[in-house]
Write a protein that binds this DNA or RNA. Sequence first.
RNA 1: GCCGGGGUGGGGUAGUUGGUUAUCCUACGGGACUGUGGAUCCCGCGACUCGGGUUCGAAUCUCGGCCCCGGCCCCA
Length: 428
Amino acid sequence: MDIQRPRGTRDFLFEEMKERKQIENSLRDIFETYGYAEIKTPLFEDLSLFTMKSGEGITGQIYNFQDKGGRDLALRPELTAPVARLYLNELQKKPKPLKMYYFGSCFRYERPQKGRWRQFWQLGCELIGGKSPESEAEIIAMAAHSLENLGLDNFEIHIGNLGIIRGILDSADVPRETQDTIMAIIDKGEIEELKNTLKNNDMPPNTREVLLTLVGMEGHREVINNASEILKEMPESLKALKDLDELLNILEAFGFSKYTINLGIARGLDYYSGIVFEIYVHSLGAQKQISGGGTYNLIELFGGEKVESTGFAFGFDRLVECVRLCGMENKPLKTVDVYVAPITRDVKLKAFEIAQDLRKIGIRTDVDLVGRKLKKILSQANNLGADYVVLVGKRELDEDKVTVKNMKTSEQEQVDIKQIPEYFNKIK
RNA sequence: GCCGGGGUGGGGUAGUUGGUUAUCCUACGGGACUGUGGAUCCCGCGACUCGGGUUCGAAUCUCGGCCCCGGCCCCA
């Protein structure tokens, strides 16, 4: 029998794991310098936590099951809802603003393809109880900072404000449900479909025109001016646009100005309420979005007090892919610094003793465990990237010494057994 | 879920008008070398994704499953 790994999952080997760990640590460092602290939530939750947020339709894309007690559970498909739940359960009375970040795997039952897995990792954060444009600006700045810290510069951050389009639709008295349909179409970027849908719905012709123009608007600061011209008659939308303008001012103060204003971002999910942003890396192909976020009112939806919350998450696996594309070459993995080689089998106990002494002072040490010939041991030490080999042999032992071989220069010298830890400490 | 392309030792490959023991490279294990690595040579290990069909005979033709890759839908 040949057991395969489940579809859409991966095994990570040593080098890849090291690479992922480095990226993870780089992101953690940045998040922590912005005052975020890590939290962890369970891998599975009550199914209703996710259906409340996204509707029953979501179960098609979720791994859900009944446990032996008959409870309906689901492997988490994302982390925003679990974090909101955690906040409601444990943190409501903590001083605001509350900054937390998370790193963990999520599961979705979808067809795997490039940049899409059935088990994937998200690293993201939530800022609960901040004020609007300031918190949003800081979060976007932190996202950009995180990417820069990874050495990436080929990303685009698109920022929009859902309030603008919602405002237009509200002023035309478009019912909420129709609005959601329209938002979904905008999110897809289907202009023709949008035209048709607008045609089929009763609204002032002016509204249609304004909508179609706005949705296509994308660019830098000038977009604000152009849009405010078009939105003169719509105070609600104008206010949202002003908020966006203010956010950009703050964002520039935080040192990031490479953003793209994109009024066509809609983020399908209807719990987003104001600012939304998405980050793309076009060279990734179809799955080019590496991050998405914005301001939402999920907590209210779950029955909590109204608090402003903003958050975003990186698709961690896609980020790893980006770092690879940037051509950072992976050095072969080095796992030991010193290899202890008994020259003959009868001195192996002495070799173990020496190895253990080195480990105790924090030197990555390996020792021959299979009784191979010296030649093979040296070859193994070489493969593992060891800098030094301690040759333990009878002749030297008679004088309480061992031979230390430098694998790079091939130089050898005799070292007193008692001096070994000190010898390597010096070199370290 | 839909459309298309794939699947040969651990990794990379040759081989399809069906025909002995399936090619080569690399990795790995052992040896030549009894106390010194990265070189060379020798030996060894090890594969046709799975199941059915056609056939005297299938890696090769055919059907189905599984898995991978690209795209659509959706999403990270």
